[in-house]
Computed example of a mutant assay.
Amino acid sequence: MESLLKNAKEYLIRSQNPDGSWGNGDPYICARILNAFSEEDTPKDVLDKGIGYLVSCQQDDGHYAGKTNMFTDAANTAYPILVLNKYAFHKASKYISTALIWLIENQNEDGSWSGRNKNKNLYTTTLCLRALHFYYFSGIARYKKGVEYSLEYIEKMNFYREPVSHVYSPIVNLKKIDRLDKKTEERFKSYATRLIHTSIMGGQVADIAYLLGTLKALDEKEDSAIAEEWLVSAVNEDGGFGKDLYSKSDPGTTALVILAIGNEF
């Protein structure tokens, strides 16, 4: 496993763009990849360029501007807030403080955070709550309203009607802020048991990684072992991972697999 992760990180190092970004340059994806790295095992110039690119995406009003329509502005802002702390950016930093203020000021009246894709409201909202919780904003009324929105939404949510990418994040984020109830946790585990087998049959690497990382966050052992064993067999020759068995490696999926195996969602 150590060799697999080492090769995957070397693939990420090789795939960094000249400007310090990865892939299409979305802050969310760049934050994910920086999260998969550590200062101990990553060349300093790679980290410096990556962090430099990430903070260059921040706009004057505090939010991190997306480069594609894949992620909402709120998600592109919340994930860097969480990851930059790993590299000594604290709450007093202008990159963090102005982003937190932007999140608070751009919450919807119903307590959610949204963007171009309304189906990602819960995905985005719980990620924003996690960022606020991490920096001790969990006592404010806006945070509590966001939690209420999320708990009401997920109680009615049919996991099987959503892409796996829309399901895993709310579960992980609610777990991280200590608001995931036992009933929802067990409902997700039942869903994951079924989806792991169908996703393996379909060669869906990214979906298996989403499920594995979430199950590990929930301290589930049996299905995690099945998912991890299969992922190890899904690595491409270049050390990276594609979204499925038939795709070439891409940085976002490769970082996702590293984080899932390392229980670092």
Rank of each mutant, 00 (worst) to 15 (best):
T184I: 14
A227T: 07
K189C: 12
M201A: 13
E222C: 03
K221H: 12
D207S: 13
R187C: 05
S199C: 14
A227Y: 13
A192I: 09
V235G: 04
V205S: 09
G239A: 08
N236G: 04
R179K: 13
K189A: 06
E228L: 09
R194C: 05
L195P: 01
A225C: 01
G213Q: 07
F188Y: 15
S199R: 15
K189G: 00
K216A: 01
G213H: 06
R187V: 07
I200M: 14
I226Q: 10
D238V: 14
R194W: 09
E220V: 08
G202I: 02
A217L: 06
I208T: 05
S190Q: 06
K189Q: 10
L212W: 04
W230M: 01
A192C: 09
K183D: 02
E185H: 05
G239F: 12
T193G: 00
T214P: 03
E220D: 14
A234C: 14
S233D: 10
V205R: 10
W230R: 05
G213L: 05
R194H: 14
E220L: 04
K189R: 13
E220H: 14
L195D: 08
A227R: 09
G213Y: 02
I208V: 15
D238Q: 02
L180G: 02
S233L: 11
L215D: 02
E186C: 07
G202E: 13
T198K: 13
L215G: 03
D223M: 10
E229H: 12
D238I: 14
L215W: 04
E222S: 15
Y191V: 09
K182P: 01
L212K: 03
Y191M: 02
M201N: 11
T214M: 06
L218R: 08
I208F: 00
K183F: 12
G213A: 06
D178G: 01
G202Y: 13
R179G: 04
F188N: 02
W230S: 01
Y210V: 01
L215S: 00
T193W: 08
L218F: 07
M201G: 08
M201T: 12
I200A: 01
S224N: 09
Q204N: 11
F188R: 06
G202D: 12
A192F: 08
Y191R: 05
T184L: 13
E185P: 06
S199K: 15
L180A: 06
E237G: 02
K221P: 03
L215Y: 02
D223P: 00
H197S: 07
W230N: 00
M201Y: 11
A192S: 12
